[in-house]
Design a protein around this nucleic acid. Structure first.
Lengths: 133, 133
DNA sequence: CTGACTGCAAACGTTTTGCACGGTA
DNA sequence: TACCGTGCAAAACGTTTGCAGTCAG
């Protein structure tokens, strides 16, 4: 478990218990929706307000501490910001897995063939994971 | 301009003037948000209801006549269903461009390294387009 | 002619806002 | 202590629903 108190402060965010909990849950589960986050945190913070979740998620996204992951047909989930990676989404177990794929050739194709200067990539592969295939 | 009356019928959709207009606008502009679509169509259909847009977009997505395109930091847009392709999103002019990239090697990497059976890909490249770079 | 579509208004779920209180730094 | 964050309630927003009238096939 990392020291999210300091990491939060490094992102100009006060380290409240609620924020530390969000960071830890995202670290442990990888990708979580707003609803699930609220549900999980209610066990620890009985008087937690959904508004607090939304306010924190928004400011954490603005400060690049976390990122929204948009996936077709599924409601958005959030993840801790980390090095560039792609996502595998299983159609059966609904699990979302991080993967590291080499996209350099694709980025250079986009550059050569379309004159596009790529800053960031967002790749989601949908199908069946190892266990469900 | 294609014959959207017949194409709509082929998708089990009655060819109402509103639906034909949606199809034509998507064909002409490529990618349009719900709001823009409503705004554009109001010029032709003064008494158009937003509810009609939503109902039609939903049924057209269900029937695979059109598809939603989810892009980070931007509200969803819709496009006519066509062969698999990727998207370029320009950070400056906000334009969304369709591109055809060969993703076979990436799909096979995902298969070899993660045992994942890929059914569909969703790739968005963000950066600067030819004109804005 | 019949079922499906439209437009309107109301309902609904999600997200945001304002404010008083409490906690972090 | 000063400011920022929290929780609550209300408001705002986007989307869906029900219904009566209309239109496509």
């Amino acid at each position: 478990m990392n020291n999210y108190t300091d990491i939060l402060r490094a992102h100009n965010l006060k380290a409240t218990p609620q924020r530390v909990a969000i960071a830890e849950l995202l670290y442990l589960h990888g990708h979580i929706s707003i609803d699930s986050l609220y549900e999980m945190m209610l066990k620890t913070f009985q008087s937690l307000s959904l508004a607090t979740i939304y306010k924190n998620i928004n400011i954490m996204v603005e400060n690049s501490f976390i990122q929204e992951v948009k996936i077709a047909n599924i409601k958005s989930v959030y993840e801790l910001t980390k090095e560039s990676h792609s996502h595998l989404v299983c159609n059966k177990c609904q699990n979302i897995e991080d993967i590291s794929l080499d996209l350099h050739s694709i980025m250079s194709d986009a550059s050569k063939e379309y004159g596009f200067r790529v800053n960031s990539t967002d790749l989601v592969l949908t199908g069946f994971c190892k266990n469900c295939a």
